[in-house]
Amino acid sequence: MSIRGIVSRLLQVIITLIGVTFITFCLSYIAPGDPAMTVLETAEISVSQETLESTRHGMGLDRPFLVQYGSWLGQAVRGDLGQSYSAKKPVVDKMKEAAPATILLAFMSIAFMLVTAVPLGIITALKRNHWVDYLLRIVTFFAVSIPTFWTGLMLLYFFGLKLGWFTIGSSKASFEGAVLPALTLAFFMGGKYMRQMRLIVLEELEKEYVLGMRARGLSTTRIILHHVLPNTILPLITLLGMSIGWLLGGVAVVEIIFSWPGLGKMAINAIAMRDYPLIEGFVLWIALAYICLNFLVDLSYSWLDPRLSKEGHEK
């Protein structure tokens, strides 16, 4: 990547970050409800006009809108995201508490998905128009059409309540507790990945190099594992980048069903409590995570396939 490219890219990142946080700030400003009021109510202090005014002043809510945003931005650049209204601790600490649970869930679900969807996608491509292909394609259609919260609740019902394989309702993050939520997410993502894998592999199988290898008598297994699979990695990485970004936001619906103490649940609680600094911090984290992932995906492209970066230079 040239210097010019890097600079324009950085500029774009900065504009995006400012844009996203500004939108959230605007929303919290025009939203009904008064955070100062919520703080007083949760602390069970009787609310007189005077205490309300002084609380608002203490929280900096009486300043003009742009001044509020400016000072938040100034602090954020220095790594200080302010105090959470509801938890009375720094937003950064609160997010550090919730992040490991979300990260664990994200990677576990990705792992579950990859070990099932990728082989199944290859099988459907190899068995094209065989009944196995039809069956698995029907499964993929269902997988992308089921609401995640419903899959989650059904898994809870069968494996938690009926079979009793998993303890439910513990609000601590653990490997055992991550299995059902990870399966829920893996099932939803798996549908999309199986379809994509099938398409990519079908496309590869039609290329001449595969025909050449077949003619030379190489086994299908060898062709798939050594020659077709490496070619599916690039498109797979793009998809994975998007999925991980989505998962790192903490998939709120799933986290709530399984009372999983991650970022998504934290964000939903923050919205309910009108805890704006926490919401703002959460939004910033997701935007950053997403941008970093996209950047890594681009980097991995030119690393895995050096031709791509050369073509970029010629442009």
């Binding site: 995006t16 919290s28 989505w246 919205i271 997701i286």
Partner: peptide
């Protein structure tokens, strides 16, 4: 296109939850 970039640099679901949640 800058607006588009901002919207696409973000998992849509999260922003939708934030907007719908904050607005009530």
């Amino acid at each position: 296109m800058r607006c588009v970039d901002i919207m696409l640099a973000f998992p849509g679901v999260v922003l939708a939850i934030a907007i719908a949640g904050i607005l009530g």
